[in-house]
Amino acid sequence: MIPLLVCDDSAMARKQLIRALPADWPVSITQAAHGEEALAAIRQGLGPIMLLDLTMPVLDGYQTLAALQAEGLQSQVIVVSGDVQDEAVRRVRELGALDFLKKPADPALLLETLQRHGLYQAANQPSSAPPAPRAELELKINFRDALREVTNVAMGRAAALLAKVLGVFVQLPVPQVNIFEVSELHMTLLDAQRGERLSAVCQGFIGDGIAGEALLLFHDSEVADMARLMRWQPADDAETAEMLLDLASILIGACLSGLAEQIDVRFSQGHPQLLGLHASIDHLIQLNQKRWKKTLAVEISYSLEGQDIHFDLLLLFTEDSIRRLTHKINYLLS
């Protein structure tokens, strides 16, 4: 049996990736939830081949590849990530990765990649013999982990588009998934404000029984830097608002498109609306407290490398959408 290490913080992602492996590949699979666990497994000889995610807590994929080089550890690494920025691909190759595949991994492309690098060799058994069952497929996946992973892939595609528009590298977080009462949402937004004044753009979406709003928060102290990156020179608040609406349309649209593609939904999107310019969170809450009651919230905080700029994106799903969204995500796992 060939030792294979699958490193990803999402149990859903590990399950999808293990399912995508060639059925007749005789591998013994070890799983790791972050880079530190992966390095410990490799030191024990359990990871001569590794499939590695990039966006993880504790030790991310870039740091893991760097640590492999620093320690002189031997592992042939194929990165499988939702972060599909051109710069991400370039960096992992520079750090020694053999190849890069986007999530979710296509089984045919994964097989071709393993063959091209001489990593795949079919089991020496009659073709009529059924493959041995993989106990790893019995992973228990909860709804929040699954939604977090689906969002991770969607935000990676949005980041790739944003990176091209702004000419920067977008640093991606692990998305946060929570079910909030409106008072809890208020506290979360207050925390995001960090004592600053904000401008906020909201865009509604609906499709196949799933509805909600995307809320994008910009810190006013960073707007001038964003204008510089976008080669805008806003002369007044009206032009600033136009710039923020354009940027929000790119980021929200790409993220929703990536989400819709994975769960097989076609979202209709409303026009982005400016909720407030140079406003406090309290004002934004007062404007929208009737719409934001109990909600499923996915929080993504993008930041731009080398810039003091970040965006807080909240995908707020209505309470009535949770059942349908759960059904759609469960279908991905069946």
Results as ranks from 00 to 15, higher is better:
residue 80 V to M: 05
residue 80 V to F: 05
residue 80 V to I: 15
residue 80 V to L: 05
residue 81 S to R: 12
residue 81 S to E: 09
residue 82 G to P: 13
residue 83 D to T: 04
residue 84 V to T: 15
residue 85 Q to F: 08
residue 85 Q to W: 10
residue 86 D to F: 02
residue 86 D to W: 03
residue 86 D to I: 01
residue 87 E to C: 01
residue 88 A to K: 09
residue 88 A to M: 08
residue 89 V to Q: 15
residue 92 V to K: 08
residue 92 V to Q: 14
residue 93 R to H: 15
residue 94 E to P: 02
residue 95 L to H: 09
residue 95 L to E: 10
residue 96 G to S: 12
residue 96 G to L: 11
residue 96 G to Y: 12
residue 97 A to L: 11
residue 98 L to Y: 15
residue 98 L to Q: 14
residue 98 L to G: 11
residue 98 L to P: 12
residue 100 F to Y: 15
residue 100 F to M: 10
residue 102 K to I: 04
residue 102 K to C: 03
residue 102 K to A: 13
residue 103 K to C: 03
residue 103 K to E: 02
residue 104 P to T: 11
residue 104 P to M: 04
residue 104 P to G: 08
residue 108 A to M: 08
residue 111 L to H: 15
residue 111 L to T: 14
residue 112 E to T: 06
residue 112 E to Y: 08
residue 113 T to S: 12
residue 114 L to A: 10
residue 116 R to K: 12
residue 116 R to I: 01
residue 116 R to Y: 08
residue 116 R to V: 02
residue 117 H to M: 04
residue 117 H to I: 04
residue 118 G to A: 06
residue 118 G to E: 15
residue 118 G to F: 09
residue 119 L to T: 07
residue 119 L to K: 06
residue 121 Q to C: 11
residue 122 A to H: 04
residue 122 A to N: 03
residue 123 A to I: 00
residue 124 N to D: 15
residue 125 Q to K: 13
residue 125 Q to M: 00
residue 126 P to F: 07
residue 126 P to Y: 09
residue 126 P to E: 09
residue 126 P to I: 05
residue 126 P to W: 06
residue 127 S to I: 07
residue 128 S to A: 05
residue 129 A to F: 05
residue 131 P to D: 02
residue 134 R to K: 11
residue 134 R to D: 02
residue 134 R to I: 00
residue 135 A to G: 01
residue 137 L to D: 10
residue 140 K to M: 00
residue 140 K to T: 07
residue 140 K to L: 01
residue 140 K to Y: 04
residue 141 I to H: 06
residue 141 I to F: 04
residue 142 N to G: 00
residue 143 F to I: 06
residue 144 R to T: 11
residue 145 D to G: 05
residue 146 A to N: 07
residue 147 L to M: 09
residue 147 L to G: 03
residue 148 R to M: 05
residue 148 R to T: 05
residue 149 E to Y: 14
residue 150 V to R: 06
residue 151 T to Y: 00
residue 151 T to I: 00
residue 152 N to G: 15
residue 154 A to T: 10
residue 154 A to R: 05
residue 154 A to D: 11
residue 155 M to A: 02
residue 155 M to I: 12
residue 155 M to N: 07
residue 156 G to C: 06
residue 156 G to Y: 10
residue 158 A to H: 11
residue 158 A to Y: 09
residue 161 L to N: 13
residue 161 L to P: 00
residue 162 L to W: 12
residue 162 L to H: 03
residue 162 L to Y: 04
